[in-house]
Structures are given as structure tokens and as C-alpha cells.
Amino acid sequence: MTGAQEVNSAWRPALSRSVILRHDRVRDTDLLVLPERVVVLRGSAGSVLRLCDGANDVGAIVATLAAQHPGAPVADEVPVFLGRLRAEGWLT
């Protein structure tokens, strides 16, 4: 995992205090609004981050997404994605 931290399935990710998840109606896409920066999210990234509320652990997030997207490789991809965002400091 280049640039990502190891992710424990019991970790309960939440957006960092300085990060806001917003939906841009004009672009019809989700955004992460950071101090002095905006990150445009692609694909299902917004759906994943909406589950990062500090109450759901990584295992529950993966299970929810697997039920919503049968056959998708969420068990492999979601922990890596969350680890990358944690390494950026966007998730606690």
C-alpha cells in the first residue's frame, strides 16, 4: 500500500475536524472541503465517506457497501481507500 496506512477492521473512521463532505449540485459530484483546498471525489467515494461517522467500524462499512454493490471488490478496495485518506490526515 503505497502512501497508505494499515487499516484495522475495528477502526471507526470519521472525517477530521477540518474536513467537510459536501455535494456540489452544479457538478453533481461529492467534494471534500478542506482548509484552502477542495478535493473532487470520483465514483462511489462519497458513499464510502458518508459511512465514516465514527460509529461504523471498517468491517461494518465494508459490509454495508458489499450489500449495496454485490460483486464489487469492496473488501479489498475500501480499506485501502480509507488508509490513503487517513494518511492524508482527512480521516481520524
Rank of each mutant, 00 (worst) to 15 (best):
M1Y: 07
T2C: 09
T2Y: 04
G3D: 05
G3R: 06
A4H: 04
Q5S: 09
V7H: 04
N8K: 06
S9T: 11
A10M: 10
R12Q: 10
R12M: 06
P13T: 12
P13H: 13
A14M: 02
S16V: 06
S16G: 14
R17E: 12
R17K: 12
I20T: 11
I20A: 14
I20L: 12
L21Q: 05
H23M: 12
D24Y: 08
D24K: 07
V26E: 04
D28P: 05
D28S: 11
T29E: 11
D30C: 13
D30S: 10
D30V: 15
L31E: 05
L34A: 14
L34Y: 04
P35T: 15
P35M: 10
E36K: 04
E36L: 10
V38L: 13
V38W: 02
V38P: 02
V38A: 13
V39D: 05
V39C: 14
L41K: 05
G43V: 13
G43C: 06
G43S: 06
S44D: 12
A45T: 10
A45C: 09
S47H: 06
S47D: 14
S47F: 05
V48R: 01
V48Y: 04
L49I: 11
L49R: 00
L51Q: 07
L51V: 09
N56H: 14
V58I: 07
G59M: 04
A60Q: 12
I61C: 02
I61Y: 00
I61W: 00
A63P: 01
L65A: 05
L65G: 02
A66K: 05
A66F: 00
A67Y: 00
Q68P: 03
Q68T: 07
H69K: 10
H69R: 13
P70W: 01
G71W: 03
G71I: 13
P73Y: 08
D76Y: 08
D76A: 15
P79H: 03
F81N: 03
F81M: 13
F81K: 06
F81A: 07
L82Y: 02
G83W: 04
L85I: 04
L85G: 08
L85P: 02
R86D: 06
R86S: 13
R86I: 06
A87K: 07
E88S: 15
E88L: 12
